[in-house]
Design a protein around this nucleic acid. Sequence first.
DNA 1: CCAAAAGTGTTTTAGCTACACCCATGA
DNA 2: TCATGGGTGTAGCTAAAACACTTTTGG
Lengths: 233, 233
Amino acid sequence: MENLKNEEFIHHLSYDSVIFGFNGKLLKILVLEYHNTGLFALPGGFVKRNQSLNEAAKEGLTKRTGLKNVFLEQFYTFGEMERYDGNAMKHILEGNRLDTGKNRWMLDRFITVAYYALINYDKVTPVPDELSDSINWYAVDELPPLMMDHKEIVEKALEVLRKNLDRKIVGMNLLPSKFTMKHLQQVYEAILGEDLRRTTFQRKMLSLNVLDRHEKLYQGKAHKAPYLYSFKQ
Amino acid sequence: MENLKNEEFIHHLSYDSVIFGFNGKLLKILVLEYHNTGLFALPGGFVKRNQSLNEAAKEGLTKRTGLKNVFLEQFYTFGEMERYDGNAMKHILEGNRLDTGKNRWMLDRFITVAYYALINYDKVTPVPDELSDSINWYAVDELPPLMMDHKEIVEKALEVLRKNLDRKIVGMNLLPSKFTMKHLQQVYEAILGEDLRRTTFQRKMLSLNVLDRHEKLYQGKAHKAPYLYSFKQ
DNA sequence: CCAAAAGTGTTTTAGCTACACCCATGA
DNA sequence: TCATGGGTGTAGCTAAAACACTTTTGG
């Protein structure tokens, strides 16, 4: 636990990440479970004194997923007094048999900068952090009870993601490099939580002129094989 | 300067506000000039240990403008290492004859949560803070050289404001309670930095069904008198 | 009665939806 | 050849844009 030394981090400030993945059916996020506590939380961490905020979040994401150069964006900074729960953190430290004296700064109030990431579900083997014994994918509408205000953070992340859907090419990060139109539509439907019209969706996507069409995907099914697409450049 | 006591504030964390106003022609923001330094900066401040982040920003806005209940929204948290400039802050403290020993925490690196506000230009008598000898309106495209990364913060604020223009009823906060369609259009044009079509704009605004029409405004000019409008409820 | 600005009716255009039809595929 | 899912043409609808015309005002 030497990397949690008092001096190394900026106090009172943390980051938390809502890491989205798509398993082909459901939109999921990564959730940690802390040792011996039954507490679930978003993956997060602290900012080193000589490290930029965005770098810290990026580094944290890489540690948990092994992925680099993925879509990661800040979306809100949570700083309410109500989010402070010293007992929860004490519980976590004790569950890890850490000295609550030396690590007192971790029991203080924290303001947290929240990020969301979009990653390729299949390319990831999630790695728990030092304080946790597991990290797992959970469908966004079947989350375990999350500690402090983490549920609220997830909800805000979803809201921002939905709001940005029409501006950003979101599928790029959640899908493998080649995918069918149906896959792409499923991602959109999972994010929006509603069904979309097949023909309308296809035409809208094609009209954006951001997709390259490739060979067809033969699935061994008794129907027309769909084209594979990828995002341009 | 007792309200800058070491113990009272969370270290390494600040907020800065881009406070927009509209003088009838130009989109402007409030800029501070620090005592004896020639340094210009956005109005900002620190977060008390027992105060929520949003409350701190709201309180700071009220202090500088006297206004309560105005539109104020967080839009990004700036945490790059490059934004840290201990010399600038030292310069400011010295310009105010403050002990750089006791106030050493203010020379540290800061991560700042940026807000933007929309206020009614005519209802404000801006008040400088303790470290500044003036606070003034500057047109967004005629800003003085701002310290550290404050120019970048203003640019991001403008970007966010433009992106949100179609979703929020922005004019509500920047105009007096009654205004003509032309005034409203001028606000939009000032924010977007481009001209809009008169007829299209009028119809779009009316179709939103958020305006009440009132009496006409006689300006003593040789042309048809425009209606005055206000935002509903 | 003129010029300028404001308001609105009408036409044109573009995008979306619904529906249909055809195509490709493997059983 | 049948059932199934995929791709696209077309007709209809709606909202936005472009254009033009009328109205109001003070000189």
